[in-house]
Nucleic acid binder design. Structure first.
Lengths: 152, 152
DNA sequence: TATTGTTATACTCTATAACTATA
DNA sequence: TATAGTTATAGAGTATAACAATA
Protein backbone atom coordinates (compact mmCIF):
# COMPACT_ATOMS: atom_id res chain seq x y z
CA UNK A 1 0.00 0.00 0.00
CA UNK A 2 1.18 3.47 -0.85
CA UNK A 3 0.85 6.26 1.64
CA UNK A 4 -2.05 8.57 0.86
CA UNK A 5 -0.60 11.72 -0.72
CA UNK A 6 -1.15 15.06 0.94
CA UNK A 7 -2.32 16.68 -2.26
CA UNK A 8 -4.93 15.38 -4.61
CA UNK A 9 -3.42 14.29 -7.89
CA UNK A 10 -4.95 17.04 -10.00
CA UNK A 11 -4.13 19.75 -7.52
CA UNK A 12 -0.52 18.61 -7.48
CA UNK A 13 -0.39 18.82 -11.27
CA UNK A 14 -1.91 22.27 -11.43
CA UNK A 15 0.26 23.73 -8.72
CA UNK A 16 3.40 22.23 -10.18
CA UNK A 17 2.50 23.69 -13.57
CA UNK A 18 2.06 27.12 -12.00
CA UNK A 19 5.41 26.84 -10.29
CA UNK A 20 7.20 25.87 -13.50
CA UNK A 21 5.41 28.63 -15.38
CA UNK A 22 6.56 31.15 -12.80
CA UNK A 23 10.16 30.03 -13.22
CA UNK A 24 9.70 30.48 -16.94
CA UNK A 25 8.34 34.01 -16.47
CA UNK A 26 11.05 35.01 -14.00
CA UNK A 27 13.97 33.75 -16.05
CA UNK A 28 12.56 35.26 -19.24
CA UNK A 29 12.40 38.62 -17.52
CA UNK A 30 16.06 38.34 -16.52
CA UNK A 31 16.95 38.35 -20.19
CA UNK A 32 14.34 40.93 -21.16
CA UNK A 33 12.30 38.36 -23.01
CA UNK A 34 8.61 37.68 -22.86
CA UNK A 35 7.84 34.08 -21.92
CA UNK A 36 6.57 33.53 -25.46
CA UNK A 37 9.78 34.80 -26.97
CA UNK A 38 11.82 32.63 -24.61
CA UNK A 39 9.78 29.62 -25.60
CA UNK A 40 10.31 30.40 -29.26
CA UNK A 41 14.06 30.72 -28.79
CA UNK A 42 14.26 27.46 -26.85
CA UNK A 43 12.32 25.74 -29.58
CA UNK A 44 14.70 26.99 -32.25
CA UNK A 45 17.88 25.93 -30.45
CA UNK A 46 17.82 22.62 -32.32
CA UNK A 47 17.84 24.36 -35.70
CA UNK A 48 15.52 26.33 -38.01
CA UNK A 49 11.84 25.43 -38.02
CA UNK A 50 9.08 26.25 -40.50
CA UNK A 51 6.14 28.46 -39.63
CA UNK A 52 3.57 25.71 -39.99
CA UNK A 53 5.46 23.38 -37.70
CA UNK A 54 5.83 26.22 -35.20
CA UNK A 55 2.11 26.90 -35.12
CA UNK A 56 1.60 23.27 -34.14
CA UNK A 57 4.35 23.24 -31.55
CA UNK A 58 3.20 26.46 -29.96
CA UNK A 59 -0.53 25.93 -30.40
CA UNK A 60 -0.88 29.27 -32.14
CA UNK A 61 -2.85 30.50 -35.12
CA UNK A 62 -0.60 31.38 -38.01
CA UNK A 63 -1.36 35.09 -37.72
CA UNK A 64 -0.41 35.05 -34.03
CA UNK A 65 2.86 33.41 -34.93
CA UNK A 66 3.53 35.99 -37.62
CA UNK A 67 3.34 38.69 -34.98
CA UNK A 68 5.50 36.82 -32.51
CA UNK A 69 8.18 36.22 -35.14
CA UNK A 70 7.90 39.84 -36.33
CA UNK A 71 8.67 41.16 -32.87
CA UNK A 72 11.46 38.67 -32.27
CA UNK A 73 12.94 39.56 -35.64
CA UNK A 74 12.74 43.28 -34.90
CA UNK A 75 14.75 42.59 -31.74
CA UNK A 76 17.36 40.76 -33.76
CA UNK A 77 16.72 37.38 -32.15
CA UNK A 78 15.51 35.41 -35.15
CA UNK A 79 15.51 35.69 -38.93
CA UNK A 80 13.23 34.40 -41.66
CA UNK A 81 15.04 32.35 -44.28
CA UNK A 82 13.64 31.21 -47.60
CA UNK A 83 15.78 28.27 -48.59
CA UNK A 84 13.18 25.82 -49.77
CA UNK A 85 12.08 24.97 -53.27
CA UNK A 86 8.56 26.01 -52.30
CA UNK A 87 8.82 29.76 -52.28
CA UNK A 88 5.71 30.19 -50.17
CA UNK A 89 7.36 28.72 -47.10
CA UNK A 90 9.96 30.15 -44.80
CA UNK A 91 11.99 28.81 -41.95
CA UNK A 92 12.75 30.66 -38.74
CA UNK A 93 16.33 30.56 -37.54
CA UNK A 94 18.13 32.00 -34.54
CA UNK A 95 20.50 34.87 -35.16
CA UNK A 96 23.83 34.72 -33.30
CA UNK A 97 22.30 37.01 -30.70
CA UNK A 98 19.22 34.83 -30.48
CA UNK A 99 21.44 31.79 -30.09
CA UNK A 100 23.28 33.46 -27.24
CA UNK A 101 20.21 34.68 -25.37
CA UNK A 102 18.32 31.48 -26.04
CA UNK A 103 21.11 29.37 -24.58
CA UNK A 104 21.37 31.63 -21.54
CA UNK A 105 17.63 31.50 -20.94
CA UNK A 106 17.48 27.75 -21.44
CA UNK A 107 20.35 27.18 -19.04
CA UNK A 108 18.89 29.60 -16.53
CA UNK A 109 15.60 27.77 -16.52
CA UNK A 110 17.26 24.39 -16.25
CA UNK A 111 19.27 25.61 -13.32
CA UNK A 112 16.25 27.06 -11.54
CA UNK A 113 14.20 23.94 -12.12
CA UNK A 114 16.99 21.71 -10.85
CA UNK A 115 17.16 23.95 -7.81
CA UNK A 116 13.50 23.28 -7.09
CA UNK A 117 14.38 19.66 -6.53
CA UNK A 118 17.71 20.07 -4.81
CA UNK A 119 16.31 18.68 -1.57
CA UNK A 120 14.84 15.70 -3.35
CA UNK A 121 16.75 12.41 -3.29
CA UNK A 122 18.00 11.51 -6.77
CA UNK A 123 15.80 8.45 -6.64
CA UNK A 124 12.66 10.54 -6.23
CA UNK A 125 13.77 12.83 -9.02
CA UNK A 126 14.19 9.89 -11.40
CA UNK A 127 10.88 8.50 -10.26
CA UNK A 128 9.14 11.76 -11.00
CA UNK A 129 10.71 12.00 -14.44
CA UNK A 130 9.75 8.41 -15.20
CA UNK A 131 6.14 8.75 -14.20
CA UNK A 132 5.81 12.06 -16.03
CA UNK A 133 7.36 10.34 -19.00
CA UNK A 134 4.60 7.74 -18.89
CA UNK A 135 2.00 10.49 -19.11
CA UNK A 136 3.78 12.41 -21.81
CA UNK A 137 4.41 9.49 -24.14
CA UNK A 138 0.71 8.90 -24.16
CA UNK A 139 -0.41 12.46 -24.66
CA UNK A 140 2.19 14.31 -26.67
CA UNK A 141 3.82 13.71 -30.00
CA UNK A 142 7.40 12.61 -30.16
CA UNK A 143 9.59 15.07 -31.95
CA UNK A 144 12.84 14.78 -30.09
CA UNK A 145 13.00 18.53 -29.82
CA UNK A 146 13.80 19.83 -26.38
CA UNK A 147 11.09 21.76 -24.57
CA UNK A 148 8.51 21.24 -27.16
CA UNK A 149 5.17 22.11 -25.63
CA UNK A 150 2.51 19.53 -25.16
CA UNK A 151 0.82 19.33 -28.52
CA UNK A 152 1.60 17.47 -31.66
CA UNK B 1 19.17 1.41 -8.37
CA UNK B 2 16.39 3.22 -10.19
CA UNK B 3 16.04 2.85 -13.89
CA UNK B 4 17.41 5.84 -15.79
CA UNK B 5 14.43 7.95 -16.87
CA UNK B 6 13.84 8.54 -20.56
CA UNK B 7 13.44 12.27 -20.07
CA UNK B 8 15.75 14.53 -18.22
CA UNK B 9 14.17 15.83 -15.04
CA UNK B 10 13.84 19.43 -16.16
CA UNK B 11 12.51 18.52 -19.56
CA UNK B 12 9.87 16.35 -17.92
CA UNK B 13 8.81 19.25 -15.73
CA UNK B 14 8.61 21.71 -18.59
CA UNK B 15 6.68 19.42 -20.87
CA UNK B 16 4.27 18.43 -18.13
CA UNK B 17 3.66 22.09 -17.36
CA UNK B 18 2.90 22.78 -21.02
CA UNK B 19 0.48 19.86 -21.10
CA UNK B 20 -1.36 21.06 -18.01
CA UNK B 21 -1.43 24.59 -19.35
CA UNK B 22 -2.96 23.36 -22.57
CA UNK B 23 -5.71 21.57 -20.67
CA UNK B 24 -6.33 24.80 -18.83
CA UNK B 25 -6.57 26.75 -22.09
CA UNK B 26 -8.83 24.19 -23.75
CA UNK B 27 -11.28 23.87 -20.89
CA UNK B 28 -11.41 27.63 -20.40
CA UNK B 29 -12.36 28.02 -24.03
CA UNK B 30 -15.21 25.53 -23.61
CA UNK B 31 -16.80 27.95 -21.17
CA UNK B 32 -15.85 31.06 -23.12
CA UNK B 33 -13.37 32.12 -20.48
CA UNK B 34 -9.81 33.27 -20.90
CA UNK B 35 -7.37 31.14 -18.91
CA UNK B 36 -6.79 34.10 -16.61
CA UNK B 37 -10.49 34.49 -15.94
CA UNK B 38 -10.80 30.76 -15.28
CA UNK B 39 -7.92 30.94 -12.84
CA UNK B 40 -9.53 33.87 -11.10
CA UNK B 41 -12.84 32.05 -10.77
CA UNK B 42 -11.18 28.91 -9.44
CA UNK B 43 -9.33 31.01 -6.90
CA UNK B 44 -12.55 32.60 -5.69
CA UNK B 45 -14.46 29.35 -5.25
CA UNK B 46 -13.37 29.21 -1.62
CA UNK B 47 -14.88 32.61 -0.88
CA UNK B 48 -14.22 36.33 -1.48
CA UNK B 49 -10.61 37.49 -1.63
CA UNK B 50 -9.12 40.97 -1.36
CA UNK B 51 -7.31 42.64 -4.22
CA UNK B 52 -3.95 42.68 -2.49
CA UNK B 53 -4.08 38.98 -1.71
CA UNK B 54 -5.10 38.31 -5.30
CA UNK B 55 -2.12 40.19 -6.70
CA UNK B 56 0.11 37.91 -4.66
CA UNK B 57 -1.71 34.73 -5.61
CA UNK B 58 -1.75 35.58 -9.28
CA UNK B 59 1.64 37.27 -9.44
CA UNK B 60 0.11 40.36 -10.99
CA UNK B 61 0.66 44.06 -10.56
CA UNK B 62 -2.31 45.73 -8.95
CA UNK B 63 -3.18 47.63 -12.12
CA UNK B 64 -3.21 44.40 -14.12
CA UNK B 65 -5.55 42.88 -11.59
CA UNK B 66 -7.85 45.90 -11.77
CA UNK B 67 -8.27 45.26 -15.49
CA UNK B 68 -8.82 41.54 -15.06
CA UNK B 69 -11.47 42.11 -12.40
CA UNK B 70 -13.06 44.87 -14.48
CA UNK B 71 -13.55 42.54 -17.43
CA UNK B 72 -14.78 39.67 -15.26
CA UNK B 73 -17.19 42.05 -13.56
CA UNK B 74 -18.46 43.35 -16.88
CA UNK B 75 -19.24 39.74 -17.83
CA UNK B 76 -21.15 39.28 -14.61
CA UNK B 77 -18.78 36.69 -13.18
CA UNK B 78 -17.53 38.55 -10.12
CA UNK B 79 -18.48 41.56 -8.03
CA UNK B 80 -16.52 44.00 -5.92
CA UNK B 81 -17.77 44.21 -2.35
CA UNK B 82 -16.80 46.82 0.23
CA UNK B 83 -17.61 45.22 3.54
CA UNK B 84 -14.52 46.05 5.53
CA UNK B 85 -13.93 48.78 8.08
CA UNK B 86 -11.09 50.03 5.89
CA UNK B 87 -12.93 51.77 3.10
CA UNK B 88 -9.95 51.67 0.79
CA UNK B 89 -10.10 47.92 0.40
CA UNK B 90 -12.50 45.75 -1.50
CA UNK B 91 -13.09 42.06 -1.77
CA UNK B 92 -13.84 40.17 -4.96
CA UNK B 93 -16.66 37.67 -4.80
CA UNK B 94 -18.21 35.30 -7.32
CA UNK B 95 -21.66 36.13 -8.58
CA UNK B 96 -24.10 33.20 -8.84
CA UNK B 97 -23.19 32.98 -12.52
CA UNK B 98 -19.50 33.09 -11.69
CA UNK B 99 -20.03 30.37 -9.12
CA UNK B 100 -21.74 28.21 -11.71
CA UNK B 101 -19.18 28.70 -14.48
CA UNK B 102 -16.29 28.48 -12.06
CA UNK B 103 -17.47 25.14 -10.73
CA UNK B 104 -18.01 23.80 -14.24
CA UNK B 105 -14.57 24.91 -15.36
CA UNK B 106 -12.92 23.52 -12.25
CA UNK B 107 -14.64 20.18 -12.64
CA UNK B 108 -13.87 20.08 -16.34
CA UNK B 109 -10.20 20.61 -15.70
CA UNK B 110 -10.12 18.05 -12.94
CA UNK B 111 -11.76 15.54 -15.21
CA UNK B 112 -9.37 16.20 -18.08
CA UNK B 113 -6.33 16.02 -15.83
CA UNK B 114 -7.51 12.76 -14.29
CA UNK B 115 -7.97 11.47 -17.82
CA UNK B 116 -4.32 12.19 -18.57
CA UNK B 117 -3.39 9.63 -15.97
CA UNK B 118 -6.10 7.08 -16.59
CA UNK B 119 -3.56 4.56 -17.85
CA UNK B 120 -1.36 5.10 -14.83
CA UNK B 121 -1.55 2.61 -11.95
CA UNK B 122 -3.02 4.25 -8.86
CA UNK B 123 0.27 3.62 -7.12
CA UNK B 124 2.16 5.70 -9.66
CA UNK B 125 -0.41 8.44 -9.42
CA UNK B 126 -0.04 8.63 -5.64
CA UNK B 127 3.72 8.54 -6.02
CA UNK B 128 3.64 11.44 -8.43
CA UNK B 129 1.41 13.48 -6.15
CA UNK B 130 3.63 12.74 -3.17
CA UNK B 131 6.86 13.73 -4.85
CA UNK B 132 5.30 16.87 -6.31
CA UNK B 133 4.04 17.61 -2.83
CA UNK B 134 7.60 17.47 -1.53
CA UNK B 135 8.62 20.08 -4.07
CA UNK B 136 5.62 22.30 -3.48
CA UNK B 137 5.83 22.35 0.30
CA UNK B 138 9.32 23.72 -0.06
CA UNK B 139 8.61 26.31 -2.70
CA UNK B 140 5.10 27.60 -2.29
CA UNK B 141 3.20 29.16 0.54
CA UNK B 142 0.54 27.20 2.34
CA UNK B 143 -2.84 28.78 2.00
CA UNK B 144 -5.14 25.81 1.84
CA UNK B 145 -6.86 27.34 -1.14
CA UNK B 146 -7.38 25.01 -4.06
CA UNK B 147 -5.48 25.76 -7.23
CA UNK B 148 -3.60 28.63 -5.86
CA UNK B 149 -0.73 29.30 -8.19
CA UNK B 150 2.82 28.92 -7.07
CA UNK B 151 3.51 32.14 -5.23
CA UNK B 152 2.92 33.22 -1.68
C1' DT C 1 3.01 59.81 5.19
C1' DA C 2 1.77 55.21 3.89
C1' DT C 3 -1.49 52.08 1.84
C1' DT C 4 -5.26 50.59 -1.37
C1' DG C 5 -6.90 50.63 -5.50
C1' DT C 6 -7.78 53.11 -10.12
C1' DT C 7 -6.53 55.62 -14.38
C1' DA C 8 -3.57 56.64 -18.35
C1' DT C 9 -0.62 54.79 -21.52
C1' DA C 10 2.05 51.61 -24.18
C1' DC C 11 3.20 47.23 -25.59
C1' DT C 12 2.67 42.13 -26.21
C1' DC C 13 -0.23 38.27 -27.22
C1' DT C 14 -4.03 36.16 -29.47
C1' DA C 15 -7.86 35.14 -32.69
C1' DT C 16 -10.89 35.83 -36.90
C1' DA C 17 -11.35 37.21 -41.46
C1' DA C 18 -9.64 38.84 -45.66
C1' DC C 19 -5.81 38.98 -48.53
C1' DT C 20 -1.32 37.88 -51.52
C1' DA C 21 1.74 34.82 -53.55
C1' DT C 22 2.96 30.41 -54.87
C1' DA C 23 1.86 25.65 -56.02
C1' DT D 1 -8.22 25.29 -56.22
C1' DA D 2 -5.35 24.59 -52.27
C1' DT D 3 -1.61 25.94 -49.26
C1' DA D 4 1.80 29.18 -46.77
C1' DG D 5 2.12 33.14 -44.83
C1' DT D 6 0.79 38.24 -44.11
C1' DT D 7 -2.27 42.16 -43.09
C1' DA D 8 -6.17 44.37 -40.78
C1' DT D 9 -8.63 44.65 -36.84
C1' DA D 10 -10.26 43.91 -32.26
C1' DG D 11 -9.84 42.54 -27.70
C1' DA D 12 -7.37 40.57 -23.65
C1' DG D 13 -3.36 40.64 -20.64
C1' DT D 14 0.49 43.02 -18.56
C1' DA D 15 3.62 46.64 -16.63
C1' DT D 16 5.05 51.48 -15.28
C1' DA D 17 3.88 55.80 -13.65
C1' DA D 18 0.81 59.09 -11.93
C1' DC D 19 -3.27 59.69 -9.30
C1' DA D 20 -7.33 59.66 -5.70
C1' DA D 21 -9.12 58.23 -1.46
C1' DT D 22 -8.52 56.53 2.93
C1' DA D 23 -5.79 55.42 6.99
Amino acid sequence: MTKEPVLRFTEALVRLAHLVQQVFVDVSKEYELTPQQAQLLCLLIGGPVGMTELTRSLHLEKSSLTGLVDRAEKRGLVARTRDSHDRRTCRIALTPEGERIGALAHDGMTERLEALARELPQQHRDLLASVIGEILTEHTAQTGRAWLPSGS
